[in-house]
Computed example of a mutant assay.
Amino acid sequence: MSEKPVRVRLWWRTNPLLPPLPKGYKLSRPARFGHQGEDWLRDAWSLSIEIQEERNEAGDQFALARFSAPDAPHEWLAPGGRFALFDGATVLAEGEIINP
């Protein structure tokens, strides 16, 4: 996994009737970053996510994120960066990097 995790804000795009992920839940999914084009799968990287807080009233959820691979482009995890987490062709969540 990558060096140091970064704090992220997540907006889930899945069914709002499903229960939110609990604090401590971990998942790893392919991520498309804001600067990547339509051919993003040629340079795709997975993020490992650990939920840190329950979902708030606005629907946001805060988590820690890091790349799953040690040779990943860690500079992509800069504050203000945006990404989307995928399950196949479905966007599970959109995220923003809060701080390193």
Rank of each mutant, 00 (worst) to 15 (best):
E3C: 04
V6W: 01
A69N: 11
E54D: 15
N56V: 06
D39G: 08
Y25Q: 11
A93L: 07
R32Q: 15
L85N: 01
G37L: 08
L64G: 03
P73H: 05
L41A: 08
P16C: 04
R9W: 05
P19E: 09
L92W: 11
I98C: 06
D71E: 12
A65L: 06
L27D: 06
E75H: 14
R29K: 14
K4D: 06
I49C: 00
R32M: 12
E96D: 10
P22N: 09
M1T: 12
R42E: 14
D39A: 11
G37C: 06
L41F: 07
A72V: 02
V91R: 06
S68V: 05
Y25E: 07
F33D: 01
E57T: 12
A63E: 05
E50S: 09
G95N: 05
R32V: 06
G59I: 11
W76D: 00
D43E: 14
F86E: 03
A63H: 08
F83S: 02
G34C: 09
G37Q: 06
T90F: 15
A69S: 15
F86N: 03
H74V: 13
N99S: 15
Q61F: 10
E75F: 15
G24N: 07
E96G: 07
G81A: 13
H74Q: 11
R66I: 01
R13W: 10
L77E: 01
L21H: 14
A84P: 04
H35F: 15
Q61T: 06
E94R: 08
P20E: 02
W45G: 00
G37A: 04
L64C: 07
S28E: 13
R29I: 01
L21E: 09
D43V: 09
R42C: 07
